[in-house]
Amino acid sequence: MSPALPNHVAIIPDGSRRWAKSKGLPPRVGHEITFFETTPKLIRCLLTAGIHTITLWAFSTENWARSAQEVDWLMQIFVRFVDETRESATADAVRVRHIGRRDRLPVELKRALFVAEESTVSGKRGDLNIALDYGGQDELANACAKYRAHACTKPDSLSSYLFTAGQTYPNPDLVIRTSGEQRLSGFMPWQTAYSELYFTRVLYPDMSEADIHSALDWFSTRQRRHGI
């Protein structure tokens, strides 16, 4: 791994519905392009570039507030996405991990995540985190509850109760957010304390390999002092 490259890249894939609207298409089409065309392409691009850990924020805790119809077909999309990702991850020796709550997910999706995690556990090339029903405030609240229940006393041990605990690279070096929004919206508040933040106006379904390389090139110019 070149020192100029991040070990862990996290993506907030924003703009799927706006992309569909701009083309006069139903919102579902935007999400289908996002998860079945754009995301597989970008994951392969990042792996080829030498990135070890990739995190994709697929569904936030706030997304449950969307219409029941939209949530329903999003869950259907996620089942297929996880299944197809498992197949490609197995071929690429990549370990798939779910981060977020699992208790509220549909049974079929929970089953797909379990199979994906179990069947790729020996992957050594890298890690792919799929953030489903993930919210940073929710993560911290749950971590604090577990921390208190175990009567921990070390100030830094809270991180061992986060969803990313135990991973080789638990903290993103680079966070990419698409569609022009310039905020994290509660994404990994603990883990992103020293992340470099890259914002692009490109709507996620239009994100290309060239856009990824532009983000990586930008990262290579940053001087990361970590408060020093």
Rank of each mutant, 00 (worst) to 15 (best):
I33W: 10
A141F: 15
S122A: 00
R125M: 13
W64H: 03
L74F: 14
S2L: 05
T200G: 01
F199I: 06
I51R: 06
V29Q: 08
P40I: 13
A10D: 01
R102C: 09
K124Q: 01
D206T: 05
S22Y: 05
I176H: 06
M188D: 12
T34D: 00
T34G: 08
E209R: 06
R44A: 05
E139S: 12
S119V: 00
P155G: 06
G180W: 13
G227C: 03
S157E: 02
E32G: 02
P3G: 02
R111T: 09
K146I: 06
Y204S: 08
R80V: 09
P13R: 02
A193C: 07
I228K: 11
Y204E: 13
L109Y: 03
G50E: 03
K146H: 01
A68G: 01
L5C: 14
R17C: 13
L25Q: 01
P40H: 04
R177W: 15
C45G: 07
P172W: 15
F59Y: 15
G30W: 01
Q69C: 01
S22A: 10
H226S: 04
T38M: 11
L25S: 04
V96E: 07
R183K: 07
T39L: 15
L74C: 10
K110C: 03
A20P: 06
S88N: 02
P27I: 04
G30K: 12
L197R: 00
V175R: 08
W73N: 12
I54H: 00
F59T: 02
N129H: 08
F81Q: 01
T38E: 09
M188W: 13
T55M: 12
T200M: 09
W19I: 03
A49H: 13
A143L: 09
T168G: 04
T85Q: 10
Q182D: 05
C144M: 09
I51M: 02
H8P: 14
T120Q: 06
P6N: 13
V82A: 09
Q167P: 02
L56K: 08
P13E: 10
